[in-house]
Amino acid sequence: MSELLEVTTRTIEGVAIVDVSGRMDAATSRDVEVALTTLIDGGSRKIVFNGKNLTYISSSGLRVVLASLKRLRQDGGEMALAALQPAPLEVIRMTGFDRIFTIFDTPELAISSISC
């Protein structure tokens, strides 16, 4: 795992939370991809991507979250983004990903929305 990125997972009210800290770039996004794929393969269908400590995302990171969302929606699942910092949020908006993902101010709001 890269020193520039940390990814941990936990579950609250049946929703898997993926906490991502640091940089999601072409080198580090693989770690997030592994975490998300493991969750989905393990049966998780509701996922919150917590970007509270995510400082940076590039198109490589976008590719990972988009692929996971496609898999989830094919199976009736959902993934929401939460607590994005200004720089990642700008990238999400520049690429129109804010039209595809639902974005919440906090992980708690995301959990309560998609756990219903």
């Binding site: 590039s58 198109s59 976008l62 988009l66 520049m94 129109g96 039209r99």
Partner: peptide
């Protein structure tokens, strides 16, 4: 430029990197 308004089913990831370079 990529179509950044496409919905999930029609969304392509290719070209986003160049789009970001131009944008910033």
């Amino acid at each position: 430029p990529p179509d950044v308004t496409a919905d999930l089913d029609h969304r392509k990831i290719g070209g986003l990197g160049v789009h970001l370079i131009r944008s910033v």
